[in-house]
Design a binder for these strands. Structure first.
Length: 791
DNA sequence: CCGTATACTTAGGAATGCGCTC
DNA sequence: GAGCGCATTCCTAAGTATACGG
């Protein structure tokens, strides 16, 4: 079987490079035609066996039918052949029912909570944090708090989490070995040896700062500062398991600026009548006004949700008057906002500079924290401002009001006794000191009820170390993947249905780099991954375009990005799929005895640390490595090498289905590029012509001046040709990249050491591959990977 | 075993910045 | 120096994964 030999290469191979051979049409849920069928089915489907009531809103409207449906469900279920299946379905029913009940309860709670929140929203003024700059001194001297007292004084929540042994180790201070699974790799032990030296040196420095030998004080200071900026954490011992930091200090998050009411001349009209809104209603209204040009406002759900939530912010009398969103005229507000943003664009240089420096001040003040004695950037130190929820795809909650977060919502996490001051007149919700987590602050967002976190920047040790570890696990998978593949192929024949399903799903995860596919609530967009595929997401074709056993995938994945792919599969897989689909209707789970937990448990048994997403990382990085090896011509120019790199990168992006909207200006910019190319060609022709003439003349006259002139021309021709080549390469690259996003894979899936090694081996400057931020993020890899590194 | 809570990674689009051309 | 087009940065939603408690 071809697949047996190199299923992975195939997918990422040449077809992919030229692009767009299959499955690359981009359809988000915007593309209603495409997926509407599913939704049409959905309601019906639910009436059948599964009754997952994914779409509660719709179901609610159908309350009347509901009972009927349930009877139907039962009778249908009775028709089932496999009684096991039936049982599982029944379970699902009851699960669902329970869920619904709970949901209802939760809703009630939410509603009352909303009210409370609303009043806060209106009344509490948020002081811009930047104004309160008196941060306690204590927060600067992180070393002050002794580890011991810190540990002993953990709040209960923390105690419960930390295992006693771990705690002991914290006190003992180092050096617990890294777990084998982390990085027991060659490079790794090499760097570990280095580690000790570096560490000792460091310690010395830290201890007897004033007495250190080398250089003048200023020089030393400089050196240390530099060192701080490029802290080589990867050469140090890691923390023991579960401990994320020993000391952590920061200044707390920055809150959104307070709402500024609109000037009196910016009107709002209802039913043609001018109307002055209360501040709260105006603020929320303005969120909508600002989005008037957006696609969202054409969506019913968005409008319905917005209006419902908006009313909560209206005064009693406003509520009475404003009963229909259609009668609201926000256009004056929008015009005003547009004018404002125009104004912003037209700011003078000085103003821009001032704003920039103000911004830098803010970053300086709030954008950093001190963790384990090192200053590190925070990723998102600003709390999300209020606005309208912009769910992606067909999200049932789009348009809901995301309310303003105040200090009373925020939990601060830091070393005990170093908590930042809340803004004047406010309190934190809680201050804790949990060093088993990496976040500095958190709050619960009101639309989905999820916790949001303030965390460190990707260049930080905390993120980098994890990233490194991720790639190490992926490399381990490389070693055992053959065995694993053998195993799951064997499992295709298993007597146990559960195992067969698991093995087929795993095959998809491995071969197609599908995501795991956790279960989702019905109040989220309906998207799926491998384990949550439903019957309607695949179709089976014994024959398609000359190929046997073709499975056509068509579903919405993460971010409601469409995955479409026609895949020839092994006969056994095909047959299994036929079995899985027997007696099922659209809406039913393809793998009804499988979920991500089961899958991951199994994977962990196969290899420690293995989960479904590791396959994506592994296949992505492995593809890059293979493609680079294949596409790079060592003799070619740097430009051409970069094209090769981009193509390899693109192969990965295609594998992972990383799409993007075709840039709005794509056609135009392409055209411009073509014009440039044509012009360049003409220029070359002209130059060649005159070169010939000059040469002739030189030959004829034999004058030195003419010779020189001819030589100059020749050089010019060469230069022009090179420019043309660059332009052409650029054109190819851009065309191939039209609807593919390379960034995501570069940032999240490709082991940076592969790229670094490739650059070093091929004399390509790393700047050509990674921009500044990326270089910061991947500093560890740039530092440790030599040209010989192989994934 | 199941549902829920929690924490952390991955993701695409919008906003902004910046260098280039005219 | 304005306008343009691309690259970068910002933003935050949407995933994965696991722990926990009943």
């Amino acid at each position: 079987m071809t697949c047996e030999k190199s299923p992975w290469g195939d997918g990422a191979g040449k077809d992919m490079l030229t692009g767009l051979s299959n499955g690359m049409d981009r359809h988000k849920s915007k593309d209603k035609d495409h997926h509407s069928h599913k939704h049409k089915h959905k309601d019906k489907d639910r009436e059948k066996s599964k009754d997952k009531s994914r779409d509660k809103h719709k179901d609610k409207h159908k309350d009347k039918h509901r009972d009927k449906d349930k009877h139907k469900d039962k009778s249908k279920d009775k028709e089932r052949k496999h009684d096991k299946e039936e049982r599982s379905k029944d379970r699902k029913h009851s699960k669902e029912d329970r869920k619904v009940e709970k949901e209802e309860k939760k809703k009630g709670k939410d509603r009352s909570k909303d009210k409370a929140e609303k009043s806060q929203y209106v009344e509490v003024k948020n002081e811009p944090l930047s104004e309160d700059d008196d941060v306690p001194l204590a927060s600067r001297s992180f070393s002050q708090t002794s580890q011991d007292s810190e540990d002993d004084d953990q709040p209960l929540a923390f105690r419960q989490k930390v295992k006693p042994e771990v705690k002991a180790e914290v006190k003992a201070e180092k050096p617990v070995k890294r777990k084998a699974e982390d990085m027991d790799d060659d490079d790794f032990s090499a760097s570990k040896k280095k580690t000790k030296k570096v560490k000792e040196e460091k310690k010395e420095k830290a201890n007897k700062k004033p007495a250190t030998s080398n250089g003048s004080p200023t020089k030393r200071a400089k050196k240390e500062k530099e060192e701080e900026e490029t802290w080589k954490w990867w050469e140090e011992e890691k923390h023991e398991d579960g401990v994320k930091w020993k000391s952590l200090e920061h200044k707390g998050p920055v809150f959104a600026t307070q709402y500024e009411p609109l000037p009196g001349n910016v009107k709002f009209k209802y039913n043609g009548q001018e109307m002055k809104l209360s501040t709260a209603a105006e603020e929320v209204g303005s969120f909508y006004a600002a989005m008037l040009d957006h696609d969202y406002v054409t969506k019913d759900v968005f409008n319905k949700n917005f209006f419902k939530d908006w009313r909560k912010f209206m005064t009693h009398s406003e509520k009475e008057i404003i009963t229909d969103l259609k009668k609201c005229d926000f256009t004056y507000m929008l015009t005003y906002f547009k004018a404002k943003s125009e104004e912003r664009k037209n700011r003078t240089k000085e103003e821009k500079l001032k704003l920039k420096s103000e911004n830098e001040e803010m970053v300086k003040e709030y954008g950093w924290c001190i963790i384990d004695g090192h200053k590190q950037r925070i990723g998102n130190f600003k709390i999300e401002p209020p606005g309208l929820f912009r769910g992606r795809g067909d999200h049932p909650k789009m348009g809901m009001v995301k309310r303003r977060v105040i200090p009373e919502d925020v939990i601060i996490n830091c070393t005990k006794g170093t908590a930042p001051k809340p803004p004047p007149g406010h309190k934190w919700k809680e201050v804790r000191s949990d060093n088993t987590v990496t976040w500095l602050a958190s709050w619960t967002e009101n639309v989905q009820g999820q916790v949001k976190y303030i965390m460190l920047n990707s260049a930080s040790r905390l993120k980098g170390e994890k990233d490194w570890q991720k790639y190490e696990i992926a490399r381990q998978l490389k070693d055992s993947v053959d065995k694993i593949r053998e195993t799951y192929k064997e499992d295709w024949k298993s007597k146990e249905m559960k195992i067969r399903q698991r093995s087929v799903a795993l095959y998809f995860i491995d071969k197609l780099a599908l995501r795991a596919g956790n279960e989702k609530d019905e109040d989220q967009a309906d998207t799926v991954g491998a384990c949550s595929l439903r019957v309607e997401h695949i179709s089976l074709h014994e024959q398609k375009e000359g190929k046997q056993c073709v499975v056509v995938f068509d579903f919405l994945g993460k971010d409601s990005i469409r995955y479409y792919n026609e895949v020839p599969v092994e006969k056994r897989v095909f047959k299994n799929l036929q079995i899985f689909m027997e007696n099922k209707k659209p809406g039913d789970d393809l793998f009804d005895r499988l979920n991500t937990t089961i899958m991951n448990k199994h994977l962990n048994d196969l290899m420690e640390g293995l989960t479904a997403k590791v396959f994506r990382t592994f296949n992505a990085s492995n593809t890059l490595q293979e493609q680079l090896d294949e596409l790079t011509d060592p003799k070619s120019s740097v430009t051409e090498k970069i094209l090769a790199y981009n193509r390899a990168n693109r192969a990965v992006a295609i594998l992972c289905n990383h799409q993007r909207a075709v840039p709005k200006t794509f056609a135009k910019s392409m055209e411009n590029l073509q014009i440039k190319i044509t012009t360049k060609r003409e220029a070359i022709e002209d130059a060649e012509k005159s070169f010939k003439d000059l040469k002739k003349e030189a030959k004829k006259t034999g004058s030195a001046a003419a010779k020189i002139a001819a030589g100059k021309k020749e050089k010019q021709v060469e230069k022009l040709k090179e420019q043309l080549m660059k332009l052409e390469v650029q054109a190819t690259d851009r065309e191939e990249n039209k609807e593919i996003a390379l960034g995501t894979s570069k940032l999240n899936y490709l082991d940076p050491r592969i790229s670094v090694a490739w650059c070093k081996k091929n004399d390509v400057p790393i700047e050509k591959i990674y921009n500044k931020t990326q270089r910061e993020k991947f500093q560890w890899a740039i530092d440790m990977a030599g040209p010989e590194f192989v994934f």
